[in-house]
Deep mutational scan, measured.
Amino acid sequence: NQASVVANQLIPINTALTLVMMRAEVVTPMGIPAVDIPRLVSMQVNRAVPLGTTLMPDMVKGYA
């Protein structure tokens, strides 16, 4: 099973992602693959992402 990107903290809307905000976890359903974490750094979320939420492609501006 491939790990997905999960929020390590509450990420407010329009926040630029940093490594500290994300962790890799095997979850269902799968979200953004953990291998993409370096690519996500400095991209912004388009909604508030609660702690423990799996990041989906439509939550990150410019990802999809």
Score class of each variant (00 low, 15 high):
1 N>P: 15
1 N>A: 15
1 N>I: 15
1 N>S: 15
2 Q>A: 15
2 Q>L: 09
2 Q>P: 15
3 A>G: 08
3 A>N: 13
3 A>C: 15
3 A>T: 11
3 A>E: 15
3 A>Y: 07
4 S>N: 01
4 S>G: 05
4 S>A: 05
4 S>T: 11
4 S>M: 02
4 S>K: 02
5 V>T: 06
6 V>M: 13
6 V>Y: 03
6 V>C: 15
6 V>W: 02
6 V>Q: 04
7 A>C: 06
7 A>D: 01
8 N>K: 10
8 N>G: 14
8 N>A: 15
8 N>H: 14
8 N>F: 12
9 Q>M: 11
9 Q>P: 01
9 Q>A: 08
9 Q>L: 11
9 Q>C: 06
9 Q>W: 11
10 L>H: 11
10 L>Q: 09
10 L>R: 11
10 L>I: 13
11 I>P: 00
11 I>K: 00
12 P>C: 07
12 P>V: 06
12 P>D: 13
12 P>W: 05
12 P>R: 08
13 I>L: 09
13 I>G: 10
13 I>P: 11
14 N>H: 13
14 N>V: 03
14 N>E: 09
15 T>L: 04
15 T>A: 09
15 T>Q: 10
16 A>M: 12
16 A>W: 09
16 A>Y: 05
17 L>K: 00
17 L>F: 02
17 L>C: 01
17 L>T: 00
17 L>Y: 01
17 L>D: 00
17 L>R: 00
17 L>N: 00
18 T>V: 09
18 T>D: 03
18 T>E: 04
18 T>G: 04
18 T>M: 08
19 L>S: 05
19 L>N: 04
19 L>M: 12
19 L>V: 12
19 L>W: 08
19 L>Y: 10
20 V>Q: 08
20 V>D: 06
20 V>F: 11
20 V>M: 13
21 M>E: 02
21 M>G: 03
21 M>W: 02
21 M>N: 05
21 M>A: 04
22 M>H: 00
22 M>A: 00
22 M>G: 00
22 M>L: 15
22 M>R: 00
22 M>P: 00
23 R>P: 00
23 R>W: 03
23 R>G: 07
23 R>Y: 03
24 A>V: 11
25 E>P: 01
25 E>L: 04
25 E>Y: 04
25 E>C: 04
25 E>G: 05
26 V>M: 14
26 V>F: 06
26 V>H: 13
26 V>C: 15
27 V>E: 03
27 V>A: 09
27 V>F: 02
27 V>W: 02
28 T>R: 03
29 P>Q: 13
29 P>W: 08
29 P>Y: 14
30 M>E: 15
30 M>Q: 11
30 M>I: 14
30 M>V: 11
30 M>F: 13
30 M>H: 10
31 G>T: 01
31 G>R: 02
31 G>F: 02
32 I>E: 00
32 I>W: 02
32 I>V: 12
32 I>R: 00
32 I>Y: 02
33 P>Q: 08
33 P>S: 15
33 P>H: 15
33 P>W: 10
34 A>K: 04
34 A>Q: 11
34 A>H: 10
34 A>V: 06
34 A>G: 12
35 V>W: 08
35 V>A: 12
35 V>Q: 15
35 V>E: 15
36 D>C: 06
36 D>V: 04
36 D>R: 04
36 D>A: 10
36 D>N: 08
36 D>E: 10
37 I>D: 00
37 I>C: 05
37 I>P: 00
38 P>V: 09
38 P>C: 09
38 P>I: 05
39 R>T: 13
39 R>C: 10
39 R>M: 11
39 R>W: 11
39 R>S: 08
39 R>K: 13
40 L>P: 00
40 L>K: 00
40 L>D: 00
41 V>Q: 08
42 S>L: 07
42 S>V: 03
42 S>G: 11
43 M>G: 04
43 M>H: 05
43 M>A: 12
43 M>V: 04
43 M>R: 06
44 Q>A: 08
44 Q>N: 10
44 Q>K: 06
45 V>G: 01
45 V>K: 00
46 N>V: 14
46 N>S: 14
47 R>I: 06
47 R>K: 12
48 A>Q: 10
48 A>Y: 10
48 A>I: 11
49 V>W: 02
49 V>N: 01
49 V>G: 01
49 V>M: 06
49 V>K: 00
49 V>L: 09
49 V>D: 01
49 V>R: 03
50 P>C: 06
50 P>Q: 06
50 P>T: 13
50 P>D: 11
51 L>H: 10
51 L>R: 13
51 L>M: 15
52 G>V: 02
52 G>E: 12
53 T>Y: 14
53 T>M: 14
53 T>Q: 14
53 T>W: 14
53 T>E: 07
54 T>K: 04
54 T>W: 02
54 T>V: 10
54 T>M: 04
55 L>M: 12
55 L>W: 01
55 L>T: 01
55 L>R: 00
55 L>P: 01
56 M>P: 01
57 P>D: 09
57 P>R: 06
57 P>W: 12
57 P>E: 10
58 D>Q: 11
58 D>Y: 10
58 D>A: 09
59 M>T: 08
59 M>P: 00
60 V>D: 02
61 K>S: 13
61 K>E: 11
61 K>C: 08
61 K>R: 11
62 G>C: 12
62 G>S: 14
62 G>A: 14
63 Y>F: 12
64 A>M: 14
64 A>K: 11
64 A>R: 06
64 A>D: 13
